[in-house]
């Protein structure tokens, strides 16, 4: 399976990196500061064939965050990021018939629309959760990227639906130095110190038709996008691994089998994971947590049944492991994600 990693050249410079430069210029930041230490200048970056690596894009965003210390940079940049102007893909998003379709497109074409953070959808009871896992992010920049991508989806949904949607947000971080930025740009239904970086909304909002929606237009744009993007990697290494573990969570494959699926040696896979600041067991634990959440909510499974489902010896063993993964018991985590868990 073809995947991209930190150093693969896969991010079209004329799209998100150029938007970051444009945004910086609007904020009176010297654009050459953003490209400091990189092989790109503004002209070469804007060429249609220019492809940046995720590492370079991360560096550019890091420079931007340093140049704009006010705490609003990620939100302001994010707000205009989607649908963007990435040719056919942006056309498809622009004509999405409803939120559900837009989120589905975002997830399917994440390598281009959100190359650094992987958007994932999860149904929890009557709610749909859009949560974000690392795709090519580095821990020190995760908070910035999460703010940016949540603002991007929020802004796109608000613009295309013509109204502010009642999202609820949870953040896997401590209370920030600038909580007012969250309140103004996202709304006051924001919770910190949560397990997931997620935005939740009642599922019926996914079906509400959008005024610009044009189903036939989406189909044509998607067909055109498929032609444009043929042969390019569609998932990052981390995302592909996460997907594979998710699909086989009941009998999780080992490191060797996963490396084989990704077409690389176990040592190479280990090295790549280390580059992203993670390791195989941490990825597997993360997948199990997400599955546990769904089993509790949607199937109403007890700890015993989840333990059996995930192949643990007994419920106590599972509870202990879960506490070790998240610092919470399964029921505490379930409570955190409920609407009334927000205060």
């Amino acid at each position: 399976m073809k995947t991209y990693q930190l150093n693969s050249r896969c991010i079209p410079g004329a799209y998100q990196p150029a938007m970051a430069l444009e945004f910086a210029r609007g904020q009176d930041v010297d654009v050459s500061l953003l490209l400091k230490g990189m092989a790109w200048d503004e002209h070469s970056l804007r060429q249609p064939e220019a492809l940046l690596s995720p590492a370079e894009h991360l560096q550019l965003l890091h420079n931007l965050a340093v140049a704009l210390p006010g705490g609003d940079g990620a939100f302001l940049l994010g707000q205009g990021l989607l649908p963007g102007h990435l040719g056919a893909l942006s056309h498809a998003l622009l004509q999405a018939t409803n939120l559900g379709q837009a989120l589905e497109l975002l997830q399917r074409y994440q390598a281009w629309l959100s190359p650094l953070l992987a958007p994932r959808l999860m149904r929890l009871g009557d709610e749909t959760l859009l949560y974000w896992t690392d795709s090519c992010a580095l821990p020190r920049q995760r908070a910035f990227l999460v703010e940016m991508m949540m603002a991007a989806v929020t802004g796109m949904a608000r613009w295309l639906s013509g109204q502010r949607l009642p999202w609820r947000y949870t953040f896997n971080r401590t209370r920030p130095a600038h909580p007012e930025q969250y309140a103004v740009h996202l709304g006051s239904a924001v919770q910190f110190n949560a397990y997931l970086d997620a935005m939740a909304i009642d599922s019926h909002w996914l079906e509400q038709p959008w005024p610009r929606g044009n189903g036939a237009g989406v189909e044509m744009a998607v067909a055109a996008a498929e032609q444009e993007l043929e042969g390019q990697p569609r998932r990052s290494l981390l995302t592909a691994l996460h997907d594979h573990l998710l699909a086989h969570v009941r009998r999780p494959p080992g490191l060797e089998a996963c490396a084989d699926m990704l077409g690389m040696s176990p040592a190479t896979l280990k090295r790549h994971l280390a580059q992203h600041g993670t390791h195989f067991q941490a990825e597997l634990d993360q997948v199990r947590i997400h599955v546990t959440l769904q089993l509790i909510h949607n199937q109403g499974y007890s700890n015993e049944r989840i333990a059996a489902y995930l192949g643990f010896h007994d419920a106590n063993n599972f509870r202990r492991s879960f506490k070790r993964w998240t610092g919470l018991t399964p029921s505490m985590l379930r409570h955190q994600l409920q609407p009334d868990g927000l205060d």
Partner: peptide
């Protein structure tokens, strides 16, 4: 306000 940014540009 977000529409001003989107439709007329950030500046």
């Amino acid at each position: 306000f977000h529409r001003v940014n989107r439709e007329h540009g950030q500046q």
